[in-house]
Every structure is written in C-alpha cells, then in structure tokens.
Write a protein that binds this DNA or RNA. Structure first.
Length: 519
RNA sequence: GCGCCUGUAGCUCAGCUGGAUAGAGCAACGGACUUCUAAUCCGUAGGUCGUAGGUUCGACUCCUACCGGGCGCGCCA
C-alpha cells in the first residue's frame, strides 16, 4: 500500500528531525494535481507547539527532508503555503505501477466478522430497498475478504413470527374464496401464491433467493428464526437475561431493563399472551452469533428500523458473551430508503396493499450490472431517488457502460497487438506524459483505496474510484497511441494497458459487475 | 414533541482524519470519427455549499439555534 508506506516513512522522517511529539501522519491527496501527488499539513499542526509560522516550518522541513531523508530518492518535496507537497519520481511511480498484481501485505484485519444483511421477512417479494442492502452487503463482504478479513455472511429469516402466520392465513383465505383477514396481505402476488399447492413462506423464500441470485448476491447462511425456537435458544437467552437481573415481570409481561442501560424506556420481551416479542428473539439471535464465536457483528439494516437499534445494542452489550466482541465490534450500517420513480412520478410502495415494484422487475428492466452499480454508487446515508425510466433510457450514457467500455477498449487493443513477450520489470523507456502519469498514479493508489473502503465500511467509494479509473483511461486512450508507437514506447504502453485492466477487473469483480471484452 | 438521516449547479449525487481556486454525471449549447471501438474526447455555461451565529491560522466538513425533506418513536414484525 503506497500511501500507507509513505505515511510511515514520512512520519519516521519527521521524528528523525526531532519532532517526537508527532504520533501519526495522514497524507492527503491534493485536489489540484499541480500541488503534487500527496501532501502533508504537518507544518500547520506543529505551528502551535513551535509558535512559528507554518510557512517557515514547511520550508525548513522540506529542505531537511530533501537533504537527509531516504524518501528523497523517490520523492520531490516542495513547500507551498505551509503545505509540504510530494511528487513521486516517474521511475518510482513506474516501479510501483509495474509491480501491481504482486501479493499485497495488508495490515491484519482482526476478528471473526458476521455480516448480516437483507434479512427480509418471507412474506413477499423483495423490493428495491432490499436490493440496496443486498448489493451494499455483498460488496462490503468482498472488500473485507479482499483485505484478508474473516467474514461470514448471513440472511436472517423471520420464519416463525406472526407475520408468516398472517401470510399463510391470507393465502388460505384466497384459496377458500374467503375475504383476507383484517391486516392481512393483499395484492396480486397473494393470488399467485394461492394458486400454488405449496407453503407460501417457502415459495417466497425461494423467490427471494432467486432474485438475489440474479444480482449475484449469495449468503454463507440463511439463518432460520424457527431453528432458534426449536433448539430452545430463545428460552435460554431469556434465562441469561434473568440471571443478569436484566429482566422483570410487570402486568403479566416480561420486561427488559433497557432504560437503566440508556434506552428511552423498558421493553417487553414476553407479551402477556405468553408470546415472545420480535425483540426477544432478536436478542437470542445475536446471542447465538456471539456463542458461535464471532467477535465483530455488522448489521446492515434499513433506516426504517433505526429506532430499534439502541435497544438491540444495549441488550446485546449486556449479555455476558459480549465480552468476546472487539472494541467497536458491534456496528450498524443503516441504509436510507430508496424512493422509486417512473417518468418522474413517485411509485408508492406498500407490501400490504401489494402496490409495489419488485426488485425482480427492476432487475429485468435494467439488468444486474446496472442495478448493482446504482445501488452501491451512493452513500447509504442518503435517501435515494431512483428513476426507473431514467435508468433504462439513458442506458447508453450509463456510468456502468462507461466503465465497462474502458475494459472492452483495453481488451480490443491487446487483441490487436497480439502476443508480445513483455518484461514486467522493465524500466521506463520514455518519459511519462501527464495523462499517463495521472492514470498510473490512480492505479497505484488502488490498495490504499480498498483498505479505506473496507476499514471504514464505505462501500460507495469503490464505484467512485472505478469510474475515475475508467475516466483516466479514456483520457489516456485519446492521446496515447499504442499500435503506432515505437517499439519501446509500445511495450511501455502495453504494460500500462495490462496493469490498468488488472485494476479495472479487480474493481468490477469486487462490485460484482461483469467485465465484457467486447461491446 | 423526541430521536436518527439529509439539505452542495436545473436534476441525481461526490467531496474520506477540518486544509490550498467547491467537483462529476445527466440535461443545455458549441466542437472532434478516411487515424488503436465516437458506448469516447475537447470546450462553454451553470454555486452567497438550507439560514443565522460560533470554534479555528483555515469550515461543505466541527458546535449551537432555526427552516425544509425522509424515516422512526407498539405487549407489530
């Protein structure tokens, strides 16, 4: 990892110069490329301690780094307005670039991670929101695995609660020609289910699996709520809470002492009618996760459940087994809602009334690649306006195709060039022109970017990086002829093509998007 | 009323630990294909970053208040 290594080396250099108070250095990337490849604001931070002007400090540091530091072999330092700007030498950039693809030592990513996402009730088809969590979750899993983390993915199936009962009742009613129960499920899909001679819950699960499969989202485990009840895990968990004096009885119900742990009020675990609440079973599920040895729990939930997060967090953290969790080992990623539009008109989504566009229909309309791209493209924190007609009609200007086209262009060029023996360790034979340099620099930051995405769980940065990569390649393509280049330059550029394609493929593969060789 | 998310170009959104002149796509307008795929590229236009204060050498980013939008506040799941 380039930036990571540079930060360590730069920090060592700064300490060597006598600034032992500096603990960490985070290099930033200047927005303006004229300022260099990386920059440090360390002079501003030191200014207060030293009571000197940042500009002076930067100048002095820059001089001394240029004179003494080992970094000076690879990097040109310059002080501008108090910033210390660093520009990699072309030779160094080239050597980093040509070594792309060699094994990378990421820092250890500790913990056994359980990543739970989607977890939709098996009471109907998945909608576009589920699609969003599904894609975010699967890309997050890919990213984490890429950097060496140990990840287990899980879909929690609520196959035991009142809702599945209501679904079965609704379907039975339709089968018997009776009106569906009060608060029952409506809609065409209920009538479709009624025609089948199978358990509607099983049918729904199968179709949920099918559509997730269509967009390349799979799980290591589909965890059945029923299995928790069957093995007495809920009962056992309630006993644990009782042992911890975290529950009490009142008005015929069993309550969890949530308020004393910081929640707004206490919450019911067992209702007066003797049934478990969803909350109780959810604690048991998380308890089970801990008992299975996971030390880091990540839940991707729809933001409509955010009010539910504190009580689950408090309950889980109160369990004795939570001591197995790493620090900050219980994370919720809350995805904001997706509003669907068609021709600018909002589409109402309600499972109850059956008025909805399913994920399956969206995938049919715009395809798996586009669905996946659009779903990860934006930060999960933002509400998403997704216009179906737009996604479909603008297919030719779609960012997905822009990226895929870059890949196809590379493949086409390489096919034209044919088999050429390349020495991957060859030096730079011709100076890099700016468009080449920008492309190489971006490629070389790949592992840092992935590491950032994975550790900060910021999945949406990956499509941004990838789009930028495609853009830089298209720019390179415009001004850098390959077929007609001289032999040495051609070899150099073919290597650029090969390495760029490698990074592009890596990105697409992480996002689960295809990399066509021809378009 | 309380809590979480959000408010950046006409539209959809980036902007990572506060940093140097606020970015992109789409839409609009004007250019580039006898030359490696024009699903591409180049250019023009478009902004008091919701509002008002505060912290700081420095704020789209942090704090406070207010305004607008979304979601949630069950012995529902």
């Amino acid at each position: 990892m380039l930036k990571y290594e540079l930060e360590a080396a730069f920090l060592a250099g700064i300490i060597e110069l006598g600034f032992s108070q500096v603990n960490t250095i985070t290099l930033e990337r200047p927005k303006n490329l004229d300022f260099g490849d990386f920059a440090s604001n360390i002079a501003f931070q030191l200014a207060r301690d030293l009571k000197r002007a940042p500009v002076q400090i930067a100048v002095e540091l820059t001089q001394r780094l240029a004179d003494d530091s080992k970094l000076a072999d690879h990097i040109c330092f310059s002080a501008v307005n108090g910033f210390i700007n660093m520009t990699l030498s072309d030779d160094y950039l080239w050597s980093r670039f040509t070594s792309l693809g060699e094994p990378v030592d990421f820092p250890e990513f500790p913990g056994q991670i359980l990543l739970e996402f989607v977890s939709a009730n098996p009471t109907g088809p998945l909608h576009i929101g589920h699609g969003r969590w599904a894609v975010i979750g699967s890309v997050m899993a890919s990213l984490l695995r890429f950097v060496g983390a140990n990840v287990h993915t899980e879909f929690y199936v609520n196959d035991a609660g009142a809702q599945v009962g209501l679904l079965r009742d609704s379907v039975s009613a339709v089968r018997d020609g009776k009106p569906v129960p009060e608060d029952g499920y409506q809609g065409d899909y209920i009538h479709e289910l009624a025609k089948l001679d199978q358990d509607p819950v099983q049918v729904n699960m199968a179709s949920q699996k099918a559509v997730l499969d269509r967009i390349g989202v799979g799980f290591d485990c589909w965890f059945s709520e029923l299995s928790l009840h069957d093995k007495g895990a809920v009962e056992a968990c309630m006993a644990t809470l009782k042992e911890q004096s975290l529950s009490y009885e009142k008005e015929g119900a069993l309550w969890f002492k949530a308020q004393s742990l910081g929640d707004e009020k206490d919450r019911v675990l067992i209702k007066a009618d003797g049934r478990y609440t969803y909350f109780a079973v959810d604690i048991a599920y998380h308890h089970d996760k801990l008992c299975r040895g996971f030390s880091r729990l990540i839940n991707i939930w729809g933001a409509d459940h955010h009010g539910y997060v504190p009580r689950v967090r408090h309950a889980v953290m109160a369990l004795p087994e939570s001591s197995r969790l790493l620090e900050d080992g219980f994370t919720f990623c809350l995805g904001q809602m997706v509003s669907l539009r068609r021709d600018g008109e909002p589409v109402k989504m309600s499972k109850r009334t059956g008025e909805m566009i399913t994920l399956d229909e969206v995938v049919t309309e715009i395809g798996s690649d586009a669905t996946r791209y659009f779903m990860v493209e934006k930060s999960p924190d933002t509400h998403m306006d997704f216009d179906l007609s737009l996604a479909k009609t603008r297919s030719s200007e779609n960012p997905v195709y822009y990226i895929q086209y870059a890949h196809a262009r590379i493949c086409s060029l390489l096919a034209k060039v044919g088999d050429i023996q390349l020495d991957e360790s060859m030096g730079l034979s011709e100076p890099l022109i700016p468009k080449e340099r920008a492309l190489l620099l971006h490629c070389v930051k790949f592992y840092d970017e992935i590491w950032g995405c994975a550790t900060q769980l910021q999945v949406h940065r990956l499509p941004q990086y990838t789009w930028q990569l495609a853009r830089l390649f298209h720019h390179f393509y415009e001004v850098c002829p390959i077929i007609k280049a001289s032999d040495s330059l051609q070899q150099q550029r073919i290597l650029i093509l090969l390495k760029t394609r490698f990074i592009l493929r890596s990105c697409l593969s992480l996002m689960g998007i295809s990399a066509p060789e021809r378009m």
